[in-house]
Amino acid sequence: MMAKTPVQFSLNGSSAAVFVDDAQNLLDVLRRGVGDLTPKYGCGQGTCGSCTVLIDGEPHLSCLTLAETVEGRSVETTNGLAAGPNLHALQEAFMENFAAQCGYCTPGMLMAAKALLDRTPRPSREEVIEAISGNICRCTGYDPIIDAIMAASGQATRRTG
């Protein structure tokens, strides 16, 4: 039997405690250990961004993060965005701007965008593009996502009519 390591961290404001295997990554622990299925497994090698979560407010690729390293830290996922029945402004804006089709990239996009808006409440379009440049989307063509993030920050989108 491989030794398990106990890890405690804050997940979306609640405390979480799990036993993790050596070298187990955070994505696996979130999905299988804690049962939070919002971060997605896309590539498992840090190239798609669909597993993006926030650790102490900074975006990280959870597939490349050793689970042990979040001991005592704060982890945020898309699961924690809505407050009760009220969706987060980003979630509303993604819906309004039709920024999701299959939705596979959406949790990663939302978390990358949240990290940006928490730091820079009124980003430029270029800053939005930079913030999601590590996240691949196959469906939307990115424009609706960029528009949604601009809209969530209270700024005009490019869409007319």
């Binding site: 190239t47 798609c48 063509g141």
Partner: peptide, 17 residues
Amino acid sequence: EDFNAYLMPGPGEVVDH
């Protein structure tokens, strides 16, 4: 062999449509 080398336009290459 992976998303690093499989090229696709990113959010910075969006074309006005």
